[in-house]
Amino acid sequence: MTWTAPPPPPFGGSLVAGERELLEGFLDWQRAVLAGKCTGLTGAELAQAAVPPSTMSLLGLVRHLTDVELEWFHGRFHGREVQFHYKRPGAKDAAFDEIDPEQAERDYQRLLDQWASSRAAVAGNALDDAFEDELRGPMSLRAVYLHLIQEYARHNGHADLLRQRIDGETG
């Protein structure tokens, strides 16, 4: 049986909640949008690249955002040494360039697992907790949430176009 991406995990929350719940909810919403763009597609469909010379694909976005979550919530915010799944020196676009449709289910599950890991990593931290980012200077957890929301939103625009190219699905 051929694997197809499942429906997105449930998300939700109050739109009149406190700041933390709103930030977490909006990030979960953006995460679910990406998963929704993948729903029902096979590994081969997820791996279809946009338009040459671009190697961007839905599967590439899944892989890229897995490493982005790992980098920001574990590596940057907590200052932990992280082992990326796809990113490595000398291959900045490996998440896009080195996809294997046969590994789509594994890659998709890694993203879902990373979401849970990211949530757990910062569960005990306050939004004002900060770290020193080597490019941006001091950054709070609040800024990390906003950055990730922006990162997903930007890539979800790409995902809209990729999905439409694959099967005409929009929305």
Score class of each variant (00 low, 15 high):
Arg80Leu: 15
Ala116Ile: 03
Ala104Ile: 05
Ala123Tyr: 06
Ile166Arg: 00
Asp128Cys: 00
Val144Glu: 00
Gly168Asp: 12
Leu27Glu: 01
Pro7Met: 08
Ala50Ser: 15
Leu127Ile: 06
Leu141Met: 09
Leu15Asn: 14
Glu21Met: 09
Leu161Asp: 03
Phe96Ala: 00
Gln164Pro: 01
Glu105Met: 05
Ile166Tyr: 00
Ala32Val: 03
Val33Asn: 06
Trp115Asp: 04
Phe96Lys: 03
Asp67Gly: 13
Arg88Ala: 11
Asp100Trp: 00
Arg163Asn: 09
Lys92Ile: 09
Leu112Trp: 10
Val51Glu: 10
Met56Val: 14
Gly60Thr: 08
His85Val: 12
Ala120Thr: 10
Ala44Lys: 08
Glu132Leu: 12
Phe11Tyr: 15
Phe96Ile: 02
Asp128Glu: 15
Glu134Cys: 02
Ala17Asp: 15
Asp93Gly: 06
Leu146Trp: 03
Phe96Tyr: 14
Gln83Ser: 14
Leu135Gly: 08
Val62Glu: 03
Arg88Thr: 07
Phe96Gln: 01
Ala153Ile: 04
Tyr108Arg: 05
His85Ala: 14
Met139His: 12
Glu21Tyr: 06
Ala116Ser: 11
Asp97Met: 05
His85Phe: 15
Ala32Thr: 07
Phe84Asp: 07
Ser117Lys: 08
Arg76His: 09
Leu59Gln: 00
His155Glu: 00
Thr66Pro: 11
His158Ser: 02
Gln114Cys: 07
Asp133Tyr: 02
Ile149Glu: 03
Glu71Thr: 14
Gln109Gly: 10
Leu65Gln: 13
Asp100Tyr: 02
Arg80Gly: 12
Gln48Thr: 03
Ile166Lys: 01
Ala35Asn: 00
Arg163Leu: 07
Leu61Pro: 08
Phe73Met: 06
Pro101Leu: 04
Glu134Lys: 12
Gly40Asn: 08
Ala95Thr: 07
Ala32Cys: 01
Leu146Asp: 00
Ala153Ser: 15
Phe11Ile: 05
Glu134Arg: 10
Thr2Val: 15
Lys92Tyr: 12
Leu34Glu: 00
Arg106Asn: 13
Ser57Gln: 01
Ala116Arg: 13
Asp167Ile: 05
Glu24Leu: 13
Tyr152Ser: 04
Gly79Gln: 10
His78Met: 11
His155Ile: 04
Leu161Ile: 12
Gly75Trp: 10
Val122Ser: 02
Phe26Arg: 09
Glu132Gly: 03
